[in-house]
């Protein structure tokens, strides 16, 4: 088990190095002049030349790379070309809003997707199963931006039920003091007892939450269903029934625990997908997270910021996969 995790960690480190390497060189191929960006649109040629030296852009590429990697190992992602602030700091500011979205969609994937898959497998080819499959295939194939726009159209424009975007109403933002402890708005407002802010935030997260959560729920439901269908044919399931064990135990414990490998992998996968998907969803709902951040970084050709987000995403992927692997490794069959 320890050896297995160690091996996985090593693999993760290699993947990270590869990603760092590729992003570094990719961003250098982009036709833009970082030094000019750094000093602003009205800079003189002298100022640009000085910035080129300051930023180390006059050095050979491999020197730049090793300096970059050295900084990276210390957790330094460099400074944004647009704001001149450390990327790390900007990521930290934008991360909580994204994590709130990812958290909601993961909760939905686990607590809606898995049960949906289980029920669907249990009632194979009955109407519940047909509906759930239709739902799964539907949400997995619908493009996120389309879902987001339709939800806005329906629930904001037509029904006036939910706000169109943002994390809080303007009125609240202007009139109330927003608590900042962890940076997680809903958490902070809840622990400080600011229920007005909390409910307002809750109201705002509904539409982006649904937009981003549909895909993981559908994906997890589908995978759980197919994993379970196979397991329900196993002898030990028939045997469990022959001992008079209840369908509740047979399904939710005996069968589901055997599917933990495939379900946790797909949950981890869908979290990774959600992270990527925040790009669109956050833009549509003006959600102040990593997705909006990278969208503006790309438009502004702010390559340190782009690299920072890329490295961060890769890092999350590696961690998620590691977690899934560890869960799978806890299966006694693998452990042997």
């Amino acid at each position: 088990m320890k050896k297995f995790i160690l091996r996985r960690l090593l693999l993760g480190v290699i993947v990270m190095l590869g990603v760092a390497f590729i992003t570094f060189f990719l961003t250098r191929v982009i036709p833009s002049d970082p030094a000019a960006k750094w000093v602003g649109p009205r800079a003189t040629p002298e100022q640009i030349a000085k910035a080129t030296i300051d930023l180390g852009l006059d050095q050979p590429l491999y020197v730049q790379f090793f300096k970059y990697m050295g900084d990276l190992l210390q957790g330094n992602l460099g400074a944004s070309l647009r704001t001149r602030r450390p990327i790390m700091l900007e990521l930290q500011e934008n991360l909580p809003a994204t994590i709130e979205l990812v958290f909601i969609s993961t909760i939905a994937a686990v607590f809606l997707g898995i049960p949906l898959g289980v029920i669907s497998a249990r009632r194979k080819d009955q109407w519940v199963d047909h509906l759930s499959r239709l739902f799964s295939v539907g949400v997995v194939s619908l493009p996120t931006f389309w879902v987001g726009l339709i939800l806005q159209l329906l629930f904001f424009r037509t029904l006036h039920l939910f706000p169109m975007g943002g994390q809080l109403s303007t009125e609240i933002k202007l009139t109330m003091e927003i608590p900042k402890i962890t940076g997680f708005l809903m958490f902070d407002s809840l622990v400080t007892g600011n229920f007005r802010i909390f409910t307002d935030a809750l109201w705002h997260i509904v539409l982006p939450g649904i937009t981003i959560g549909l895909y993981p729920v559908g994906l997890v439901a589908r995978m759980t269903r197919s994993a379970l269908l196979e397991i329900l044919n196993e002898d030990y399931i028939t045997a469990a029934r022959s001992y008079g064990l209840s369908e509740r135990i047979v399904l939710w414990s005996y069968a589901l625990k055997n599917s933990i490998g495939s379900t946790s992998t797909v949950v981890a996968l869908s979290i990774g997908y959600t992270l990527v998907n925040t790009f669109l969803t956050e833009s549509i709902f003006s959600w102040p997270g990593i997705g909006s951040y990278i969208a503006s970084a790309v438009i502004g050709l702010d390559y340190p910021a782009i690299m920072g987000v890329t490295i961060f995403s890769a890092f999350s992927y590696v961690i998620l996969n590691l977690v899934a692997d560890v869960i799978i490794a806890m299966d006694p069959r693998v452990r042997a």
């Binding site: 002898d235 030990y236 045997a239 029934r241 001992y243 008079g244 055997n258 069959r333």
Partner: peptide, 23 residues
């Protein structure tokens, strides 16, 4: 389920390798 399986009738399955739940 309520009256027979495991209550009045039970079964020993043919393959000891696949009859026990592996996890």
């Amino acid at each position: 389920y309520t009256q027979y399986r495991g209550k009045r009738i039970t079964m020993i399955f043919q393959d000891p390798m696949s009859t026990l739940n592996p996890v």
